[in-house]
């Protein structure tokens, strides 16, 4: 039963991916089919106001696998490192400093703008 539920949910996800793919190509939208599909799925769920058990059953394992799924792409850098010889110090400095700065900025902005949960409870 559980397996069939996952498969039905997977059918839904793949159908939204296909729909996203069609729309992105048809209207030359600069989005990947996956993101377009995700947005379509979100809108559809918002309209229906109901989340089926099947979709949850298929989504959870896939989201848990995200790290595994990007691994093949990550490995590529070890084999094409030579192309960027001489620029590695720049790349590392830009990535490390840039990411720490932007993380700090986001936390700082959110901390100032998000109301405290305890205040929220009294509303």
């Amino acid at each position: 039963m559980r397996m069939l539920s996952i498969l039905r949910g997977f059918l839904g996800l793949a159908a939204f991916l296909l729909l996203g793919d069609i729309l992105v190509r048809l209207f030359a939208i600069p989005l990947s089919s996956g993101v377009a599909g995700m947005l379509l799925l979100t809108f559809w769920l918002l309209l229906r106001r109901h989340l089926s058990h099947d979709l949850t059953a298929a989504s959870q394992p896939l989201i848990g696998m995200l790290a595994l799924l990007i691994m093949p792409g990550v490995v590529g850098i070890f084999f094409q490192a030579g192309e960027f010889a001489g620029q590695w110090p720049t790349i590392f400095i830009a990535l490390i400093a840039g990411t720490l700065l932007s993380s700090w900025t986001t936390l700082w902005l959110m901390r100032r703008l998000v109301p405290d949960t305890r205040d929220n409870a009294h509303e």
Binding site: G34, V35, G37, L55, A58, L62, I70
Partner: peptide, 11 residues
């Protein structure tokens, strides 16, 4: 599978 996994983030 990265495709359907991205769609799954809508859930």
């Amino acid at each position: 599978l990265l495709g359907p996994a991205t769609v799954a983030l809508g859930v």
